[in-house]
């Protein structure tokens, strides 16, 4: 499979020359990315390089130092609060922790965005919620409280909540972290199915190479403040960049060093 040109004519989300820094530390240096509509695009990279930050930039929770972030034709950093909230109603984000509201049960959690943004009668809300829960396989658990759910179930409930209003764009922040192989498999299948059945644009941030390779249409690999590799799974596997190869194969040392930058060990030990 090669890059399909038509995917890029009207991208859903596009980052143009974005620079972002936190205090003195530069996180992204002049980065540009494209997320085609209706496809699953994965962002991979070593931990600690600010992949979650990227999602927050797209969601308008953080502002870049410079550059444009275009979502559905609108430039996020330039929007007024009201316009930003209107754009956010069409996007949703699955957080690493699930971020279910602890004081409500699963049903009310899923119903929450519907109740906030629509004036639908309660029986229609009930139908909608139960359908979303059915899609993630948790219809039977609708009256449990979040603290009664296992980690995998909580993430699935949160997924049901994030698709409650049928968003056009969904961002997954590390959806596979800390999941056992079975719930990992369930989540992979759910993300794939949701994408095809709802024609969602999905952005998956992860560093689980195997799972991402299984579902993503396109993959970005980020390291050292910039994009080091981009393409379909096949293209990346054939890439001759040593960085990409190191990441995909999970080598401990390579262009991305094993050690956090430090003076030489002999120097450190002698000082003590």
């Amino acid at each position: 499979m090669n890059i399909n040109k038509t995917d890029f004519e009207s991208p859903h989300v596009e980052l143009k020359n974005v620079t972002f820094s936190r205090g003195e530390r530069v996180i992204y240096d002049d980065i540009s990315m494209v997320f085609p509509k209706g496809k699953i695009t994965a962002i991979m990279g070593p931990s600690g390089i600010g992949k979650t930050t990227l999602l927050r930039l797209i969601g308008g929770q953080l502002y870049p130092d410079s550059g444009d972030i275009i979502v559905s034709g609108q430039n996020i950093p330039k929007l007024s609060r009201k316009e930003l909230y209107a754009v956010r109603e069409k996007m949703s984000m699955l957080f690493q922790s699930g971020a279910l509201f602890t004081e409500m049960n699963v049903f009310d959690n899923v119903a929450f965005p519907i109740r906030e943004h629509t004036k639908l009668p309660e029986d229609i809300i009930r139908t909608m919620v139960l359908m979303k829960l059915e899609a993630v396989g948790l219809r039977g658990a609708y009256q449990l409280m979040p603290n009664e759910l296992s980690g995998g179930m909580a993430r699935r409930a949160a997924l049901a909540r994030s698709i409650a209003l049928d968003p056009e764009l969904i961002m997954y922040d590390e959806p596979f972290v800390g999941q056992d192989p079975i719930s990992m498999g369930v989540l992979v299948r759910l993300i794939r199915n949701l994408n095809t059945s709802l024609n969602l644009t999905s952005i998956v941030v992860s560093h689980d190479v195997k799972e991402v390779m299984g579902i993503a249409d396109y993959i970005y690999i980020i390291a050292d403040k910039r994009v080091i590799g981009y393409g379909t799974k096949e293209q990346l596997l054939e890439s001759d960049s040593p960085l990409v190869q190191q990441f995909l194969k999970g080598l401990a040392d390579g262009p991305v060093p094993f050690h956090y930058p430090a003076p030489s060990i002999s120097q450190d030990l002698m000082q003590g």
């Binding site: 927050r56 969601g59 929770q61 909230y85 209107a86 956010r88 109603e89 996007m91 949703s92 984000m93 957080f95 690493q96 922790s97 971020a99 279910l100 509201f101 602890t102 929450f112 965005p113 906030e116 943004h117």
Partner: peptide
């Protein structure tokens, strides 16, 4: 504080709820 730590506040913001 806990709502903040468990990303509930961020999640509200992303649902376009202030």
């Amino acid at each position: 504080g806990l709502m903040k730590a468990t990303e509930q506040l961020t999640s509200l913001e992303m649902m376009a709820v202030d």
